[in-house]
Each structure stands twice: as C-alpha cells, then as structure tokens.
Design a protein around this nucleic acid. Structure first.
Lengths: 221, 221
DNA sequence: CCAAAAGTGTTGTTGATACACCCATGT
DNA sequence: ACATGGGTGTATCAACAACACTTTTGG
C-alpha cells in the first residue's frame, strides 16, 4: 500500500530575510519536530488543489503563487508506511498573512532559510530543493513580487533579490536593469517618517508583464 | 484508493532530429494508442528505481541520464481509477540502444518531437513539459552530450542544440563558445569517406566538467 | 577543378561592472 | 549642520552577433 501526501514550502520575506513557514508537529510520527505543513491526499482532490487547501488552512490565503517542486519517493523517507510526498512551494505577502495553527500543528514559526532547525522526515532536502528552484525562477520570471507588499521601494526589491540569491548586488546596476524592464508603476507616493531622502514607492503591474511576455520577454538579473 | 505510476520520456537524437520513444499500448485502457513507457509503482521500489527499471526493460540500458519532471495528478487524467503519475525524462545515446517491445507494448517507435501522434491520457502534456525542461537544462549543464555518440563533430553538436532548442545557431559563435568552455577533448581522429573537408572528432570529458563546476561554472549558449 | 562542408579572422554593437557624486529628509 | 540612505552620470571592458573568407576532402 502506497500513501500520497502533499507538502508546502511557504516562503515569506521578513526583516530583509527569506523565511520558511514551519509547523511543530502535534502528533506522531516525529511528534514535536518542526516540519513542512501538509496533508495526506484524498482520492477525489487534485494534487494542486490539495496544496491550495493546505495553504488556506495554515495562512487563510487564497490565489497564491504556487508551483510544484516534485515528488519525493525514497522507500524509507517516512517511518512504517510508504508515503510518497508531492511538494509545492508558495510565495506569500506577509502583509496579508493570518496565522492559523490548526489541528496538525502545535504552533507555526517563520524560520530563516539559512538557519533551519532539525526537521522531520526529508523535509530539509525538500526545502533546499525548493530554494534552488526559487533561485532559478526568480531570474527568469518576475515572481519575486509575490513576496513583497503591494507598494515597495527599489531598495526593498533589491534586498529581496539579495536574500533569495544569497549574493550582494550593485545598487546602480540593479536599478538600471529594473528600469529597462519597465515593469514597475510609480505610485507617486513616498516613504514617510524616515531620516533620509524618502524612497519612491512602486507597484508591479501584472498586465504590463503579460504584454511583455508575448514579445518573448526575459527577466535577467 | 490512489494508484501511483511512473512514466518515462525517453529522448534520442536521430537523423538530426530530437525524438521521443513511444510504445503502442497492448491493453486497455486506451489500447492501441501511442503512449509513454511506464509502469505502476510497487510499494517496495523507490520512484527513481522504478523509472530505471522501465528504462532497462524498454531499452536494455543502465546508468542513463534520468531526471524527474514532476507528478501529474489531475483527478480525471486516467479513466476509472485515480492514478497519479510521476514522470521522468531520460537521454540516451542511440548507438547503444537495443529495442525491446515487452509485455505492455505492441511495438516501439521513435517519434519526432514536433510531429507527435495522438497520445493516451495526458502524455502529450507530459512530453511538452519534459521538452521545456530539457531546453532549460541544456543551457546550463552540458547534458546534451548524453544524446550523442562518444565521438562527434562540432557540427553534430550544433545540430543537436538546434534540434533541442528549435532555433538556428550561428556556426562561428557556437564554436567560439564551445571552445571557450574547454570541455571537449580532441580525439585526433577525423571523419572518413566524406566528400568535403573531414571534421575533427571530439569526446566530452566528465572529469573536466566536474572540475569546472567547482569553480561555479555556467554553460551558457 | 568543382562541390560541399569544415573551420577561422575581424569588426561594430551591446550590455555588465565599477566608481563617484548629488539629493532630500529627520534630528 | 550632519548623518542616513535614496537616486543618477559616465567610463571601461568583456561578451555577442554578423559577415566573409580560407581549407581540405571526394568525385
């Protein structure tokens, strides 16, 4: 007998750092350990919908960026039973986030991507592979915006990319590239109550992106 | 009840074209249609090993480049039963290939990637996604060599890339880039019995690649 | 000696990188 | 007035694209 589960790597951008939302397991196996939120799969739910359901249960969010990573199917990855898990990663805007511990989790916690605690099963591998995928994706598609508030400064955006890619980027060149793409809309607003020149705030416009994509657009950082 | 299967998209490079190896289904459902080779998953076999087994049964090949694409889990992708399939793609060198129709297939056939016949289930989607993945991978890692004979000319290599990427490449620039990478070893041999200047034959050296990779190597076409 | 494909030299353009400077705001 | 981070101008250099040319073989 083979069981299927769906696990979610939920990324958030908090305090200029890339974080993953983890649960503390309430039940055995691996009770007490931190783990990815997830569920066993029902026969009448598609895997994508199952990931959406998990996400909604945990964060109360819908219509979130969600992409499958892959299936993890080593024989002994789960004790006693044969469980193949299909994992997804999600990008959420923490402005909209409402935490919800729920029935499988004792508590929820945002963990720094490069300071993960001990994790249940093969969940650390899954997170690492999710992070690799995110690094690649973020270079070719402007999905990073899903992690930011609706209005953000160019510095916010640069810090996000630095956190994801784990490198430092040159300010001048980063801004030139972003401007060339013409993806951002100036909201006309500025930061307030900051002890320096206030930054302009921008919005990402999905429509502009869709139009650009038709001409064979390539988001290159 | 949920069933799991593993399907393989087997790529080959024949007559300057990228091909996929398909079977003609011997049994219902979808008897008579062309489909990807694959099997139901046993509870005591890892998904990777299951893909390897399918590959061996069909092609008699072992130690082949094999990478998971992802799981396909729509509710109605398979008639009557709920079957989630996990698909892999493989790159084989047709020099070494021994066809083997076996028990699920009436016959085997290499089909041109851009002239696929009608296919069973969602297998056309799977092939398209496999091809997209191959296009991306081939730009960042020198996996293309798995599709070529051990000794090949630069023109062979260029034609392979053109077939995979479905574009034309400039001869001069292609060769310059390949040379810059210093991945190829000159075998000292040349083509024979050709009515033009014979091309030099090269080998790809895995060791050189492994060394380069440590310095953060990037195969950029 | 001709056809065919292998293989090379060169040049203008584009884009990445680096560095230094000015600007607006709160304290 | 000054500390702080926002925002811009520009020179240099490496990478890319494009084109035309020479070379070696079989017939």
């Amino acid at each position: 007998m083979i069981y299927n589960s769906v696990d979610c790597v939920i990324f958030g951008f908090i305090d200029e750092k890339l974080k993953v939302l983890l649960i503390k397991r309430k039940n055995d196996p691996q009770k007490g350990l931190m783990a990815l939120p997830g569920d066993f799969l029902d026969a009448d739910v598609s895997i994508y919908n199952s990931a959406e359901n998990t996400l909604k249960k945990i964060t109360s969010l819908e219509d979130i960026y969600l992409e499958q990573i892959r299936a993890f199917g080593e024989i002994d990855r789960y004790p006693d039973k044969r469980v193949i898990t299909i994992s997804y990663y999600a990008l959420i805007n923490i402005e909209h986030y409402t935490p919800q511990a729920g029935y499988t989790a004792e508590k929820l916690e945002w963990c720094d991507i490069d300071a993960l605690p001990e994790l249940a099963f093969d969940h650390k591998d899954i997170i690492n592979i999710a992070h690799k995928r995110l690094k690649r994706r973020v270079r070719n598609e402007p999905i990073g915006f899903n992690l930011l508030p609706e209005e953000f400064s160019l510095t916010n955006l640069q810090q996000l990319y630095e956190a994801i890619l784990q490198t430092e980027l040159n300010k001048r060149n980063f801004r030139t590239k972003i401007n060339q793409m013409k993806l951002l809309i100036d909201t006309g607003k500025k930061q307030e109550n900051v002890a320096h020149k206030p930054a302009k705030l921008y919005r990402f416009d999905e429509n502009i992106y869709e139009n650009l994509k038709e001409d064979g657009f390539y988001f290159n950082l």
